[in-house]
Structures are given as structure tokens and as C-alpha cells.
Design a protein around this nucleic acid. Structure first.
Length: 514
RNA sequence: CGGGGAGUGGCGCAGCCUGGUAGCGCAUCUGUUUUGGGAACAGAGGGUCGCAGGUUCGAAUCCUGUCUCCCCGACCA
């Protein structure tokens, strides 16, 4: 058992942060760009994003939301209209001030002082303001509502501390923006988006999440309510994996998003916004990765099955390749999880055994190796990425399966792997949410060992606001803890508030977080 | 943005203190022998030592500045 030779140098339990970075490079997902906080997303990483995009986009469109595209540059004045929004983002904004470069006389280039912009443009950190402008133009009457839009875009936030996929200065995301006639309809959309995120995270990414409302101090700048889905990483930390905001009429007032109701009166719209980003990929890594690299859930795997012919640089290779191509075509004709199976025949020269570890590190759900003897026997050597080791002998757990049998079961196998990854993650999460911590002393003891993350706790609180809430936040901060959310549909409170001792009104999740 | 650490062939590192124009492992390429489960041996290719200045006869090594990355903190949709 100790004979297992893992594909990565760093184990999760030894150094989780270093392990995370090693997965990204070993799986060839992304690399440094030389520009602070910005990364190059390589084909395997981007392929996973494209899958997430596709599946999410289908869900968005199914809800009647239409895609648009708005400018990356936002006039500064737009931004100044909503006070809380300005304050929330001002500190992390990239600003464009010039539109031309000139020679500095020393072989370099500098912004041309003659080409200074009258009004600086900010690079969007999010698009509420500029989309609000458009909505104000597009909406006249109650008949124009609800207005449901979404855009896929990049945004920039000048982060102080960055981590690949989890927090980068530039990232890719989707931002939904909707306008409604009243609060009820807008709130319903807020919850619809949240539920859409929960379903996508759990069904597509195999990330078990807890949907709930963020406390006041964690709200999006300018929002009336902020809801999130929270996922637990393998080190016990929480990752906010998606957010959905009810913005009330704050942005409608700022941008003048008004409509005439059926009685001729003028009303302000109620708006929402919601988004998920490439951060989800970080969540997939930290949820499903293991000491051999990434494990990609089949639904979001660019290639679900990879075929590796055992080439020997002999003339017979041609026959073997032709055979593998037949297998590939047969598999591609199958369907799994409601789509055609995505299968790759890796014809690159080189030994199958070497290439195998490339795909293990990348996390392809199923790897098949085919040699001439397998071909003669009509079998395939099948390796499941969710169970690559034979724990009894420390060797790779190949299953030699008759070709037809494997092809016929391919769809079911991928569905099973998808389910196994989700179940593993859900069990781990459920086992690491502790209830019953009822005093600050207990809480302190629970998180006393700084070297380990004992997971999350669910506690009861009286939902203090303002300064009282700030005090609670400070107390938690001493233990590096944050309030994640108030889970939807949790049990009613039935005891004292852990912070104030007053009667609790609801239950909250507390955790260390990314 | 504060404190700490680091940038040397694709990857991981040594060399730096005590300046004398680069080395190891893995990977790559070639050859030979092998080969049904991450092959062995031999040989070869590949580096303006992050970048820019400075000190010096001479700088990976010393000094200054700067960029990027990692860890901790602050901040954070």
C-alpha cells in the first residue's frame, strides 16, 4: 500500500496550497502570464470552462434570459451614481486615461500627454452601471418587463492577493442582469438564478453546495439581499461558488430605470444580478483533485474517455491504430449524461504507459489502453480515474473488459463516475459540518489547532445588525472565520445566540474561506 | 498595500556567504538492447542565471532600482 507512487510530488495533506498549484501545472490547465494577477488559461483548463459555459448557458437560456454584450469600458460618471457600489469597488479599479502612446525618446513608449481622455474610463469590475443605462433606454412600459439579460465577459478587479482561478485580477464570468416590475418578481428571479447555480454546481460540476443568504456585512455593494452557494474544499475551507443579488430599486434610481404601469403611473424597476466565474474551476480542483492530479467530472470533461494505443514503432501499429479508431467511433456514437460521448484517440507517438500519466494528472474520467494482444482478445484495458489504484497491491487498477461490453456500458460508466465524485464530495462535506457548538469557548476550542481545518460549524444567532454585527465579525475574525450564509430551509432556531446570548432567530454557517 | 521567502535550460533544484564567463535530477532528442503495464544503458541538444543600472580587469555571485511568483496579514463580488 505504501508502494503507491503518486503522479504528483506534493500530497494534499502535506501542503494543500502547494498541491493546488501543482495540480494546475501538472494538469496543464493554466500558467503565469507575467502580468500581475493574470493567467493564461491553457487548452485543458479552457476546455473545462467551455463545458461549464455550455451547460450554464443552456440553463440560462432555458429560463428565457437572452445574451447580450456590453462594453468593457465604463465611463467613470456611470460608476459614481450608486454610493455603496462606488465604495465597494473604487479600491480595485483599473482606469484608462489615455488613448495613444508616443516615444519617450529612449526607445520606450509612454502615454501621450496630448491624448489624455476627457473623462477616464474604468475597466468593468462588473456591469450593473452600464447595463443599467441600457435598461433605462430599453424599458418604457410594464409591457417591457421583465427584461432578462445575461452576458459572458471578462472583468477586472485589482486584487491585492491573487491565486490562480480562485482570485485573479482578470477573470471570465457570466453576469445576469434583470429588471422587474416589482420586488416580488425580482426576488423570484434572484431565487431562480440561485437554484440554477445550485443545480449546475451539483449536477454538472458534482460540487455539493449550500444555498443561502449572505449576512449584511457580506452583501454585494448596492444590493438589498445577496444569496450565495457555498462549497466545501478538501481542506475544510469554504468557497463562494456563485452569487445572486436582489438589488431593490437602488440601481434603478441611480440609472433611471423606470416604467409606466398599467394605470399610467411611473414606477422604478426592481433589478437583480447574478454571476458565476472561472473560480468554479478552482472549486472543482479543490473538491475533486487527489494526489495524482485533477479528476474532472464527466459532464464537464472536454474528453470523457481517452484511448491510448500501445504503439511499438513497428508496422503493426497501423493495424492497432485502425482498430482504436473503430473503438473511438463506436464510443462516440454512444451517449452519456444526455450528450454524445466525448472520446479522444491519443495518437501521439510515445509509450502508452507514459501518456497514461498525462491523462491521469489531467483527470480524464476514463483511460483505455489497447495493445495488440488486447486487440486479438477483443478486450480493452480500462482505468477509471475515480479509482485508479488497486489498494491491495499498489498498482494501477486496470479492468480488462470485453470491447463490446465496455462500449455498451460506457454511458452508464460515465454517469456512475459523475455520481461517485458527487457522493464522495457530499459525504465529506456532510461529515465536516458540525452542529451544536453553542458558546464562543467551544468555538475557540474547535478551531484551536491552526494547522488543521475542522470544517464548518452551524450555529444559532440573533442576527445583529450595524455595530453589533461588526463586533460579531471581529470576534470571528480572531479565529480567521467568516459567516458564509444562512442556509435556505434550515431548521428554525431554538436556543440562545452564540454571540450575544439573546434569543437566536436563525442558523448560520461559519467557516474559514477562500 | 505591510511583513517574510523566492526568481538559474520544459519541470524541480545546487552554486551566491568567501566574484574567475553554469552544474545536478527528471523531461527531450539519437542509438542500442528491451518491453503487457510509469524500461535500461550510452551519447547529444537546450540557459543573455527575471529585467535595468552600478561596483570591478572580470558579476549568477556584491550594491541599487524594478517586475513577477509564493506564504502570512490587511482587503475582498
Amino acid at each position: 500500500m505504501s508502494a503507491i507512487r503518486h503522479a504528483l510530488n506534493t500530497k494534499r495533506e502535506d501542503d494543500f496550497a502547494a498541491w493546488y498549484q501543482e495540480v494546475i501545472s501538472a494538469a496543464d490547465m493554466a500558467e503565469e502570464s507575467g502580468v500581475r494577477g493574470c493567467m493564461v488559461i491553457k487548452p485543458w483548463g479552457y476546455g473545462i470552462w467551455e463545458r461549464i459555459q455550455r451547460l450554464m448557458d443552456d440553463r440560462i437560456k432555458a429560463a428565457g434570459v437572452q445574451n447580450c454584450y456590453f462594453p468593457i469600458f465604463i465611463p467613470l460618471a456611470n460608476f459614481e451614481r450608486e454610493a455603496a457600489h462606488v465604495e465597494g469597488f473604487a479600491k480595485e479599479m483599473a482606469v484608462v486615461t489615455h488613448h495613444r502612446l508616443i516615444s519617450d525618446g529612449k526607445g520606450g513608449l509612454i502615454p501621450d500627454p496630448e491624448a489624455k481622455l476627457e473623462e477616464p474610463l474604468v475597466v468593468r469590475p462588473t456591469s450593473e452601471t452600464i447595463i443599467g443605462d441600457a435598461m433605462a433606454r430599453w424599458i418604457q412600459s410594464w409591457r417591457d418587463l421583465p427584461l432578462l439579460t445575461n452576458q459572458w465577459a471578462n472583468v477586472v478587479r485589482w486584487e491585492m492577493r491573487t491565486r490562480m482561478f480562485l482570485r485573479t485580477s482578470e477573470f471570465l464570468w457570466q453576469e445576469g442582469h434583470t429588471a422587474h416590475a416589482d420586488a416580488e418578481d425580482a426576488l423570484s428571479e434572484t431565487h431562480r438564478a440561485l437554484e440554477m447555480y445550485r443545480a449546475c454546481a451539483e449536477e454538472d460540476l458534482a460540487l455539493p453546495v449550500i444555498a443561502g443568504e449572505k449576512p449584511e456585512n457580506e452583501r454585494f455593494p448596492g444590493a438589498v439581499e445577496t444569496w450565495s452557494i457555498e462549497a466545501m474544499m478538501q481542506d475544510g475551507k469554504a468557497l463562494q461558488a456563485g452569487t445572486s443579488h436582489y438589488l431593490g430599486t437602488n440601481f434603478a434610481h441611480a440609472a433611471g430605470i423606470k416604467y409606466q404601469d398599467s394605470e399610467g403611473g411611473e414606477q422604478y424597476c426592481h433589478t437583480t444580478s447574478w454571476g458565476v466565474s472561472t473560480r468554479l474551476i478552482g472549486g472543482v480542483i479543490m473538491t475533486h483533485g487527489d494526489d495524482d492530479g485533477l479528476r474532472v467530472p464527466p459532464r464537464i470533461a472536454p474528453h470523457q474517455i481517452v484511448i491510448l494505443p500501445m504503439l511499438r514503432e513497428v508496422p503493426e501499429d497501423e493495424v492497432l491504430l485502425a482498430y482504436c479508431e473503430e473503438v473511438r467511433a463506436s464510443l462516440a456514437a454512444q451517449s452519456a449524461l444526455g450528450e454524445p460521448v466525448r472520446v479522444l484517440l491519443d495518437k501521439r507517438p510515445g509509450k502508452a504507459a507514459t501518456k497514461r500519466w498525462d491523462w491521469v494528472r489531467k483527470g480524464a474520467p476514463v483511460i483505455i489502453e489497447v495493445g495488440s494482444r488486447d486487440m486479438a482478445e477483443g478486450k480493452l484495458a480500462v482505468l477509471r480515474r475515480d479509482a485508479i489504484w488497486n489498494l491491495e497491491n499498489g498498482k494501477t487498477a486496470f479492468a480488462f473488459t470485453p470491447k463490446e461490453e465496455f462500449i455498451g456500458n460506457a454511458g452508464a460508466l460515465l454517469e456512475e463516475i459523475q455520481q461517485v465524485l458527487f457522493n464522495e464530495a457530499r459525504e465529506r462535506r456532510d461529515a465536516n459540518i458540525t452542529r451544536g457548538v453553542s458558546s464562543m469557548d467551544e468555538l475557540a476550542a474547535f478551531y484551536a489547532d491552526d494547522q488543521r481545518y475542522p470544517g464548518w460549524i452551524e450555529v444559532q444567532w440573533s442576527k445583529p445588525t450595524g455595530e453589533a454585527l461588526e463586533k460579531v465579525v471581529e470576534q470571528l475574525k480572531a479565529h480567521k472565520l467568516t459567516i458564509r450564509n444562512v442556509p435556505k430551509g434550515s431548521e428554525p432556531a431554538d436556543g440562545p445566540c452564540i454571540f450575544t446570548g439573546a434569543d437566536a432567530v436563525e442558523r448560520i454557517l461559519v467557516a474559514r474561506a477562500y
